[in-house]
Amino acid sequence: MEFSFTMFTPHRTRGGKKDDPLVAVKPNGRIVFNKKAAELLGNHYFCMLGYDSENQALGIMPVAEQESNAFPVRYAAKGAYIGAKRFFRHFGILPEQVVENAPFRHGQYIGMKF
């Protein structure tokens, strides 16, 4: 008796590795950090945001204290998020769909190509 087995290969796979840091910008103005990327915030509860229009990059600078133009960081079991709709509207860069990218360090900033 001969057998000819066909191996199962799924048509679609779930997202990337959960160990990779990932930051997403959502159309509702939230900047969402997965658990690994949230570690870059260093347990700070506020951050300052900047935008580099030439390189189309978002800059997030964690700060220890609340300042007048600082945004609160909210931590959750799966990571963290920042509600920044006002920031995105100010620069006219609120995305129409989710934008995800790996974060990078640039001095005191956590950067993300937009």
Rank of each mutant, 00 (worst) to 15 (best):
K26L: 15
N101W: 03
H106Q: 14
H11D: 13
K26R: 13
A70M: 08
L22H: 00
K113L: 04
F91S: 07
A77R: 11
F104R: 14
R12Y: 09
M61K: 12
F71R: 08
D19A: 12
R89N: 14
G59H: 10
P62M: 07
A38G: 00
N34T: 08
E67G: 12
R89D: 13
F5S: 11
H106T: 02
A80N: 05
K85Q: 14
E65V: 07
F91Q: 07
G50E: 10
N55R: 15
I31Q: 04
P10N: 11
E65W: 03
R89K: 15
M7L: 11
D52W: 06
D19H: 05
G29H: 09
G42Y: 00
F5W: 07
M112L: 15
T6D: 05
P62T: 09
G59V: 02
K35W: 02
A24Y: 01
A70L: 06
F87Q: 06
F8Y: 15
P62H: 10
R105D: 04
V99F: 08
G107E: 11
Y109I: 04
T6N: 09
M1S: 13
N69T: 14
N55I: 01
N69V: 09
Y81D: 10
P62F: 02
L40T: 02
D19V: 09
E100P: 00
M112N: 01
G107W: 01
N101Q: 12
A76I: 15
E39P: 00
D19M: 06
F114D: 03
P21K: 06
A57H: 01
Y45R: 15
F33I: 07
R12H: 12
S68A: 14
F5Q: 12
A76G: 03
V98D: 03
G107T: 05
F104D: 09
K35R: 14
N101T: 11
G79V: 10
G83E: 15
E54K: 13
G29M: 12
M112W: 02
F46G: 01
